[in-house]
Amino acid sequence: MRPGGLILGIESSCDETAASVVRGGREVLSNVVASQMQMHALYGGVVPELASREHLRNITPVIREAMFKAGVAYGDLDAIAVTSGPGLAGALLVGISFAKSLAFALDKPLVAVNHLEGHIHAVLMQGSESAGRQVGESEEEVPVLALVVSGGHTHLYLAKQRAGTWHYRNVGRTVDDAAGEAYDKVAKLLGLGYPGGPWIDTLAPHGNPKAVPFRFAEIRHRGADPSAEPTFDFSFSGIKTAVLRYVETHGMKPAIDARRAEFAHLKPASAVSLLDRQTLDLLASFQNAVVGNLAKQTLRAADHFGVRTILVSGGVAANRELRSTMTSLAAEKGIAVHFPELALSTDNAAMIAAAAWPRFVAGDFAGSGLNATPQQRLG
């Protein structure tokens, strides 16, 4: 390993083309993201074919900008890191193809990174003592519980650092919709903009979170062994259906249809005064229920495994109510909770370069046959 420790990270798993140069898994020298949000907002969600096309358009200028902002030359790099999955197949292939070509041309190692592990390292790279130490600083096996919650994922991982690398065990996942997906679908159902997370995060504080009593049923897996260790799974399709039924039974659809076109061009903060009390209460109750369920399941898992540290990452980790609720409830149990800074909550390449660092140190490199793994699992 050369002393520079410079890794260029490339991320293209969904609708953001990102590149970042990180030194030693911690020091972010640049972090550039080209978002496709405005384009996909026209369709109310990510269109895979359009996402792939935009990645092809953006990847070269994004990487050039990341290198320029970092103030380093390609020859200074020690490795190229790229997201190998999970994600959209076409989108992943754009990043992987570019990374493979660049690594070959520069004769540099190529490191494949799981997107979910990247989100976890978005917290670890910020250097909190109790959040876990990076490679080379400690060989202690200190287990932490990581909640990765975004538009495409809601997973709980028990994570341990052993012999310089991190190891993960999946102890909970969504059985249907991810939490962020539920936010997007409810926002669309109520005639709000895309993505739904920022809209609901902004509007929910103006409503009554107790107005609509949403409930989450206990998840029971058919044929499960009663004596087996419990799982801490999530399900968010039910609350989406409950919101739909509320809209139908309370005659809200005409008002929603009337505002849909107007709200497509508004910012969330501008919409507060244009929404009726019933809609604001519904949004507040929805968010209160989802955040409460995320916190409940995560803290149940922490109690079961005796974990004293929780990491929360992914796009939904930017949600203000989730940050506040999780922190306060965990503090009551003497558990520390850590979130990434807002810029590292959503998809970015700094987290990919950070997650690649332990693998680079261990010599865990990808071969020329690296391909996209859209359904790749972690742990």
Results as ranks from 00 to 15, higher is better:
residue 6 L to K: 01
residue 7 I to L: 10
residue 10 I to Y: 10
residue 11 E to W: 06
residue 11 E to P: 09
residue 12 S to K: 03
residue 15 D to M: 09
residue 15 D to T: 11
residue 16 E to I: 08
residue 19 A to K: 06
residue 20 S to V: 02
residue 20 S to G: 07
residue 21 V to R: 01
residue 24 G to P: 11
residue 26 R to N: 02
residue 26 R to L: 01
residue 28 V to N: 04
residue 28 V to Y: 09
residue 29 L to Q: 09
residue 30 S to I: 04
residue 31 N to Y: 00
residue 31 N to R: 08
residue 32 V to P: 01
residue 32 V to C: 10
residue 33 V to G: 03
residue 33 V to A: 05
residue 35 S to C: 08
residue 36 Q to G: 06
residue 36 Q to P: 03
residue 37 M to Q: 13
residue 41 A to M: 10
residue 42 L to K: 14
residue 44 G to A: 12
residue 47 V to L: 12
residue 49 E to W: 06
residue 49 E to I: 05
residue 50 L to W: 01
residue 50 L to M: 14
residue 50 L to I: 15
residue 51 A to W: 00
residue 53 R to W: 09
residue 53 R to Q: 11
residue 53 R to M: 11
residue 54 E to G: 00
residue 54 E to Q: 10
residue 55 H to A: 09
residue 55 H to W: 07
residue 56 L to K: 04
residue 56 L to G: 10
residue 58 N to H: 12
residue 58 N to C: 11
residue 59 I to W: 00
residue 60 T to H: 14
residue 60 T to R: 05
residue 61 P to M: 00
residue 61 P to A: 00
residue 63 I to Q: 05
residue 63 I to L: 14
residue 63 I to P: 01
residue 64 R to F: 06
residue 64 R to M: 11
residue 65 E to P: 04
residue 69 K to G: 00
residue 69 K to N: 09
residue 70 A to S: 13
residue 70 A to M: 02
residue 71 G to T: 12
residue 71 G to L: 08
residue 74 Y to S: 14
residue 77 L to P: 05
residue 77 L to I: 08
residue 79 A to G: 13
residue 80 I to G: 04
residue 82 V to L: 06
residue 83 T to N: 03
residue 84 S to Y: 12
residue 84 S to M: 10
residue 84 S to E: 08
residue 85 G to R: 01
residue 85 G to F: 00
residue 86 P to M: 07
residue 86 P to N: 11
residue 87 G to W: 00
residue 88 L to C: 13
residue 89 A to H: 12
residue 89 A to F: 12
residue 91 A to E: 02
residue 94 V to E: 02
residue 95 G to E: 07
residue 96 I to M: 03
residue 99 A to S: 13
residue 100 K to N: 01
residue 102 L to I: 05
residue 103 A to K: 04
residue 104 F to M: 14
residue 104 F to V: 12
residue 106 L to S: 08
residue 109 P to Q: 13
residue 111 V to I: 15
residue 111 V to M: 12
residue 115 H to Y: 12
residue 117 E to F: 07
residue 118 G to Q: 03
residue 121 H to M: 13
residue 121 H to F: 15
residue 124 L to S: 07
residue 126 Q to L: 13
residue 127 G to E: 13
residue 127 G to N: 12
residue 128 S to P: 06
residue 130 S to R: 15
residue 131 A to Q: 08
residue 131 A to L: 11
residue 132 G to K: 11
residue 133 R to T: 11
residue 134 Q to L: 15
residue 137 E to R: 13
residue 138 S to K: 10
residue 139 E to Q: 14
residue 139 E to G: 15
residue 141 E to W: 10
residue 141 E to T: 12
residue 143 P to W: 06
residue 143 P to M: 10
residue 145 L to Q: 04
residue 145 L to F: 09
residue 146 A to M: 08
residue 146 A to K: 01
residue 150 S to D: 08
residue 151 G to A: 04
residue 151 G to I: 06
